[in-house]
Amino acid sequence: MSDYIIETSGLSVYYGKHRGILDVDLQVERGEVFGFLGPNGAGKTTTQRVLMDVIRPTRGKAHIFGRDCQKEGVAIRERIGYLPGELNLYGEMRAEEFFKMFASLQKNSPDPLYWRSLAERLDLDTKRRIRQFSRGNKQKVGIVMAFMNKPDLLILDEPTSGLDPLVQQTVLELVREANQAGSTVFFSTHILPEAQDVCDRVGIIRNGQLVATERVEDLTTQHFKRIRFNFVTTPLPDAVAEDGVIEISRDEQGITLEIHSHLDQVMQKMASFGITDIETIPVSLEEIFLAYYGKENGGTHV
């Protein structure tokens, strides 16, 4: 049996003639937190909707728990907590009524004490009608809804969207706790620091195509290096020019380079100028992400 909780192959969705996603091959491993990164319109929501059988793929396959998402969707969804990206609730209901209703429609009725504790942690007043809630509070309702069943898999579409920073942290804590309790988490976001904060691996989707899937630490260490070199005498710009190397800054003590390729050659070349100190500067996921999009937009970084 496959150890992938989510597995798609050649997954493509067209909306008429418009491309939604194209040949997405995705594997999410059991017990990991997988971040699905991409800007608006990249195909994150479409992918998640196919997984939840909300929309059907034009071609390709999607499996969750080793089962076909289209043919065995009911059995799959019994074990999933889902937060849609465009959350529209029953405004006339009180949050409490909504949770009771939603719980009653689940295969295994969730423990009311648990969803009440979730609402409490998110500081959600469950006695109020949903239509009276702000966007952030509605999002909290969606979060409780997704987590209430202690599912084996959480599929969350931009879970921290519309939330204030404190609640965002609480949501990320919930993600970590669910993961520690054995849940696999697949969540989309375009807030990169939060992906870096909680994800084991990330996939980057661009124009409907999955362009990279890597461990967060590999992505941040392997994609490119940012190194500070100090010299006795700082070399002139022309002297350090090299394909795949960008000079980020320079001062009297040395220079900072962004090295995308030929690391060994660059190191040899810098050594020839008499290095006095060397420091690797951490690269954030956000910078990696922008570098990927730099390719698309004709950027000069790579």
């Binding site: 939840m52 909300v54 009911v74 969804r77 849609p84 609730l89």
Partner: peptide, 14 residues
């Protein structure tokens, strides 16, 4: 149209 059907079809119900 109101966006609420997504909640229903993602329940474990055929």
């Amino acid at each position: 149209d109101e966006g609420r059907l997504e909640l229903i079809v993602t329940l474990p119900t055929p």
